[in-house]
């Protein structure tokens, strides 16, 4: 084999290695989803979705868990979206270069890398104990809101950065104030980017388990939460609890609950990707 042929072979080997890697991740995901479906689909029925938890696997359902997840989703969104978008707007439009902005930027990058369980410890001390919210939905949602704040801020900044400078200049030249320009031009023009980021952040919040275990969300809650001050459980904690039990019935339950959780998360990701693609096509 001459040198050129050898090089060609090596080149192809690298290429196929790359394809193999790309597929391996996806194959792992596929195997996993198939396995979950095979385990859990048989258990997934209306009764499972509308039943309270129970000591007997055949009787147990996920009513409290999924309603808790919906509660947490809504409350976290209510808290995190306004704060995150506002902070992003401030950093991108009001204070881009100062020492404070620099410090906050490094800080946000660091916060994005803090393990989620640490947020749980923070939430336990601040919300559960000092603010005396107990292991309530509100305490959990505040904790998760802090956790996803960096994601929303970064997404907001990136989305705002794509708004052409000429649009802002035109608005200023017509006598608009800074806030008028931001609220009437910048935010509408960057809305799809911000929404995409927010959905991805919320999808992360919905799947989080560890911080809520730390703040004391309970695995066994025999009633559906009615107010934000109620104790709660969520799908991931219910899954964790069932996985840790030896009875096979609970494992099946866990798989069925995972199908619901994954459905929730994948739909959110799908919507985010759809909005992003649509905005990109419009931009071209």
């Amino acid at each position: 084999m001459n040198n050129a042929a050898k090089n060609k072979l090596k080149d192809n080997l690298l290429k196929y290695f790359g394809i193999l890697c790309t597929l391996s991740g996806l194959i792992a995901l596929a195997i996993f989803i198939i396995d979950i479906l095979m385990d859990g689909l048989q258990r997934l029925d209306w009764e499972f979705i509308t039943s309270l938890p129970s000591r007997f696997p055949e009787k147990a359902g996920i009513l409290t868990a999924w309603t808790g997840t919906v509660w947490v989703f809504c409350l976290t969104a209510l808290i995190a979206i306004p704060i995150g978008v506002a902070a992003g707007v401030y950093l991108e439009e009001y204070n881009k270069k100062g020492a404070l902005a620099n410090l906050l930027e490094i800080n946000i990058a660091n916060l994005a890398g803090v393990p989620s369980i640490i947020y749980g410890i923070l939430g336990l001390e601040i919300f559960v104990r000092i603010l005396n919210l107990g292991g309530s939905l509100l305490a959990g949602s505040f904790t998760l809101a802090l956790l996803i704040l960096p994601i929303i801020i970064v997404a907001t900044r990136e989305a705002i950065r794509t708004v052409p400078k000429t649009i802002k200049e035109a608005s200023f030249a017509l006598g608009a104030t800074k806030w008028q320009t931001i609220s009437r031009q910048v935010l509408p023009a960057s809305a799809s980017g911000i929404i995409t980021g927010v959905i991805l952040a919320l999808s992360r919040a919905v799947g989080e388990t560890a911080p809520l275990i730390v703040i004391g969300a309970l695995a066994y809650v025999p009633f559906v939460a009615k107010t934000p001050m109620d104790e709660f459980t969520i799908l991931p904690i219910q899954i964790f609890n069932w996985v840790s039990r030896p009875q096979h019935g609970f494992i099946i339950n866990a798989a069925a609950a995972i199908i619901v959780l994954l459905g929730f998360v994948f739909i959110m990701n799908g919507v985010a990707v759809y909005i992003r693609n649509k905005a990109q096509r419009k931009g071209q």
Partner: peptide
Amino acid sequence: MVFQKPNPFP
């Protein structure tokens, strides 16, 4: 002011 490149709002 009128700018170099037309910049209507979307």
